[in-house]
Design a binder for these strands. Structure first.
Lengths: 151, 151
DNA sequence: AGCATATCCTATCGATCAAGTAGGATTCAA
DNA sequence: TTGAATCCTACTTGATCGATAGGATATGCT
């Protein structure tokens, strides 16, 4: 589950927009607030706009705002807008995989993995991510002591 | 959660080894059984050997076999051996991330996502993947009707 | 009208990595 | 000694990632 720089930046931007909602915020302000390269932030905001996750206003006093209310936009949507699908196996969707021999059962495993990822990113809204009041499921996942240790 | 070609190939190879355990199988046979490029399969088997997941035997009648019994090797170990850590955010481990402002809570989200991925790949053994008798948790994840539909 | 401040569009760039190939050296059993 | 196998080093090719450059276009204010 690699989250790219684009993905990370996009979520940080989106969460900042959520916190300021419904004010519009300029790309420069967003970039400054999260310490990101301004031009790169513009590119990412373009992606979010084309995915209809944010609206933009041009000109002086212009900027970006969430197209929907922060409780209504999931982190998963933001990630999909800038990187593609949440889960892929060798560039294919999990349910499109198919194997012979000992590997025949792997598609079920890939689908399960995707479902697990969705159960986090699609169940957390930008509002929750901004306030830190996550769903119970998330608290349970992070509660296990080894959740915070690398493997 | 992008599984690379290396990752996919590695799991297919590992599952094939699991099915034949404890016989040793040559790289050519493995490649043929799963329709993979032979040379590339060799590279991957080298990774698995260096991670002590498989043992190798040189010479005629040589080949590869699992270093431990198939019930004792998880899919997660195989994936880590060929791609790196199961979850990374902009090239960093989830618990190493840190943000200012509206994004302060994101590390918990990344850790939760990693925990979710682990709960699939680290809880499924090669034996289970080969037989298709997955843990209950996996069946539950794949049971939801929308688990098999793209988003 | 003119200016400052924005978004927005197109193009480019360097570095890195992924996937796969090539060729041969080495090992081992029969 | 021969054949089949692992193993090692190197290379190629293409794509992608992260980022930057420069300017065209829109908007509000004075």
């Amino acid at each position: 589950m690699q989250v790219s720089a684009r993905g990370e930046y996009a979520v940080r931007i989106a969460v900042t927009l959520a916190q300021g909602h419904p004010r519009t915020i300029s790309a420069s302000s967003l970039a400054a607030a999260q310490a990101l390269p301004r031009k790169f932030a513009e590119v990412i905001l373009g992606d979010l706009r084309r995915a209809h996750l944010v609206d933009s206003v041009r000109g002086v006093e212009g900027g970006y705002r969430l197209a929907r209310s922060p409780e209504d936009v999931s982190v998963g949507e933001v990630l999909r807008a800038v990187d593609g699908p949440l889960a892929e196996v060798r560039g294919r969707r999990p349910e499109e995989t198919s194997y012979e021999g000992a590997a025949v059962n792997l598609p079920r495993l890939w689908v399960a993995a995707r479902a697990a990822v969705r159960s986090v990113f699609d169940e957390v809204s930008l509002a929750q991510a901004a306030t830190g009041e996550f769903p119970l499921r998330i608290d349970e996942l992070t509660a296990a002591d080894d959740a915070w240790t690398p493997r």
